[in-house]
Amino acid sequence: MQALPSVAWVPAAIVWFQLSSATIYAVILLGAVPSVAMGLISGIDQTPPLLRSVGRVLGADRWQMIRHVLLPAALPTLIAGIKQGWAFSWRSLMAAEIIVHSPRLGTGLGQLLNQGRDLQDMSLVFGSVLLVLLVGITVELVLFAPLERRVLRQRGLAPSGT
């Protein structure tokens, strides 16, 4: 699923949802879901067997095992998955907005880029590119970096340079 760029879903989404916001949401979602799912699954798979044994010895039932052992153990990889999902979604959103444009979709950075192209307005194009970059970097630095650092520090793991 991750091998498929979610922009490839744009034509299908237009057929299903016409030119509505739902089309854009579908493309974003399809871009993020595989990464998030992979993060969760690999996090659970990598839970040390010893911690599962601890859960069993402490008398955890199936749900308690998930709630108190597997999900917390999977948290770092889950966050990494969400971060990657965000990156994919952000790319997809820009691509989708450039491909699909309609007054019904409102304005977005992708539309702004497209408008710059149509008007041959280079300053608008570069202004938009800078904004796209800025939003991407801000989300990474303000949202994900501190969250990852916190979770890893809590466990005594040194965060790698971001």
Partner: peptide, 16 residues
């Protein structure tokens, strides 16, 4: 009932 078991490693949950 369920016996308690201590392992060679402390096996503490690192997030708690």
């Amino acid at each position: 009932g369920q016996p308690a078991l201590m392992f060679q490693e402390p096996a503490l949950l690192p997030w708690l």
